[in-house]
């Protein structure tokens, strides 16, 4: 058996089988996630078709600058995690661990900036159920927009949070030299997950921030 035989769980014949299983498992999980968020995007589409004006005007409450920074942060983090995986594949360790920590920090930065946005929303009183003081003919329909905005970004934020924890664990394991060119499946699947988090945001950003801004 090879040097990494210890990593092969007893139900598997060999490391290759284990790697196939883990990768396929993560892809399957991502397909579930896509449908999970798909409901929110479908609900968004239906409500926006019903209330185009309300969605356009509510969308102008979102902060395009902060949203843009968040997008940049997440995209960069996807890049750093990809670099980390490549470094491990080439036999690296320290740089990879640092890159993973960097990715986690970017994830935290994303959450912090988003928290700032939520705080601004609180001050502007556009959080349905908590503090909502919109008035005007479209207030009821704008509330639907904010509701979907909070559910969507809330679930996305939860995914970012889980991703950050996952990345930090991977950083520690990388640092302890548990991964090498031969075996780094957990790292690879964690990176896959992180890319999904990123891709979901790529849809959230234009849908919620850029509607009604020509």
């Amino acid at each position: 058996m090879n040097a990494h035989a210890t990593h092969t769980a007893e139900q598997f014949d060999d490391a290759a089988q284990q790697r196939d299983a883990a990768t396929l498992g993560m892809w399957a999980f991502l397909s579930t996630e896509v449908l999970f968020f798909g409901v929110l995007f479908a609900a968004y589409t239906v409500c926006r078709v019903l209330w185009p004006d309300a969605f356009a005007s509510a969308s102008r409450h979102t902060d395009l600058t902060l949203g843009g920074i968040e997008t940049a942060v997440l995209l960069t983090s996807s890049f750093t995690v990809a670099l980390a995986v490549r470094d491990v594949q080439l036999g690296g360790r320290r740089l990879a661990a640092a890159l993973l920590c960097g990715t986690a920090v970017l994830g935290l930065a994303f959450l912090a900036i988003h928290g700032l946005e939520y705080y601004d929303d609180y001050k502007a009183a556009v959080i349905p159920g908590i503090r909502y003081e919109e008035v005007g003919g479209l207030a009821a329909q704008e509330r639907l927009f904010f509701f979907l905005y909070y559910v969507t970004t809330g679930f996305h934020g939860l995914h970012v949070g889980i991703g950050v924890v996952l990345l930090l664990i991977m950083a520690v394991r990388t640092h302890r030299a548990e991964f090498g060119p031969e075996y780094h499946t957990p790292l690879e699947t964690s990176a896959l997950y992180w890319h999904l988090v990123d891709i979901v945001w790529i849809f959230v950003f234009p849908l919620y921030y850029q509607v009604g801004r020509a």
Binding site: A140, F147, V151
Partner: peptide, 27 residues
């Protein structure tokens, strides 16, 4: 997952009093 998110939306609607499934609230 479609059921899961739909049920989550129901729970959130009850919690926050918003209704994307409720015509009285625009849903």
């Amino acid at each position: 997952p479609v059921l899961a998110m739909t049920l989550a939306l129901i729970a959130a609607e009850r919690l926050l009093g918003v209704g994307i499934f409720d015509p009285a609230l625009g849903g």
